[in-house]
Simulated assay, not measured.
Amino acid sequence: MKLLKGLWIGFWSGLILGLLLKWIQSVTGEQVYTLLLNVDFVPVIGSVQWSEITEFIFHMIIALVIGVVFVYVAKRRNYSFGQLVLISLLMSAPFPFLYFLLSWLAVEAEVPAATDWSAFLYWIFAHLTYALLLPILYKTFERKNAVSQ
């Protein structure tokens, strides 16, 4: 049950993150969605010209793993919602730094420069939304299961 709950939470939070960044990119022109999906620097797979859907699936695999890890941590104790938010924020702490790393590592993709502060703020906003979705979805799932039992 933990695995399924983690996959469910990872799926929805990852989907919303991806769609949010895609929307931000379409409205602002900042290439933050492109940055999220870019894998051109990864050995072996980076040399392949992947479709957007395949790159999105790569993103979703990472989101699924994070969702499962979050649920396994959350299930260890009966954490309050505030504690779950804190756990999620701690788990998400590397995400802002990934902006810089991914910007620097990009080979061919047109991604924002590491010094593009507006793109960085969009990245932070979207990933903060993602981090807050993890405990919200977790508690929603818990409440839904409690009602159905």
Rank of each mutant, 00 (worst) to 15 (best):
V107W: 05
K75M: 11
W23E: 14
G46F: 02
M60I: 07
V73W: 09
V73N: 10
L3S: 13
E52W: 03
M91C: 02
M1Q: 13
T54G: 03
W12A: 14
Y99F: 13
E52P: 02
I57R: 10
S26R: 06
W50V: 07
V73D: 14
M60S: 04
S92V: 01
Y99G: 06
A114K: 03
N145D: 14
S118Q: 10
A114E: 08
F97N: 11
L19G: 12
L20I: 04
S51F: 00
L35M: 07
H127Q: 10
I57L: 13
P94I: 02
F120D: 05
T129N: 13
E30D: 03
A119I: 03
D116K: 10
V32F: 01
D40L: 00
K75T: 03
M91D: 05
F58R: 12
V32P: 01
A93S: 12
L35Y: 02
P135I: 11
I61C: 14
R76T: 08
V71T: 06
T54H: 07
A74T: 08
V111F: 05
K144T: 13
K139L: 06
H127W: 11
W8E: 15
I16Q: 07
F97H: 12
V71K: 12
G67Y: 05
S92F: 07
S13K: 15
I9M: 10
H59S: 13
E52G: 01
E108N: 00
I87M: 15
I53P: 00
K144F: 10
S103Q: 07
L15V: 07
R76L: 15
I45V: 14
L64E: 06
A93F: 15
F95P: 00
A113C: 11
M60T: 04
L128P: 04
Q149D: 09
N78E: 15
L133M: 15
F70M: 14
I87C: 12
L36E: 07
F70A: 11
M91T: 02
Q49D: 04
Y99V: 08
L21R: 08
P94W: 13
L86I: 09
W23A: 15
E142C: 09
W117V: 08
N78F: 08
E110Y: 05
W23N: 13
Q49N: 04
H59I: 03
A106I: 03
L37S: 00
V111D: 02
I16H: 09
F141T: 00
I16V: 11
G82W: 00
F95T: 00
V147F: 01
F125D: 01
L102D: 01
Y122H: 09
S13E: 08
L133G: 03
L121T: 05
A131W: 07
S148T: 09
E142L: 09
W117L: 15
A146D: 11
S103R: 09
M1E: 14
R143Y: 03
G82P: 01
F11W: 07
A74E: 08
T54E: 02
M60K: 12
H59P: 04
A126F: 05
Y79A: 11
T140N: 14
G6F: 09
L90G: 06
K75G: 06
G6L: 12
K139P: 01
A146S: 15
A146E: 13
S47K: 13
E30V: 09
V147Q: 14
L20K: 02
A131F: 09
V71L: 11
V27C: 08
V71H: 13
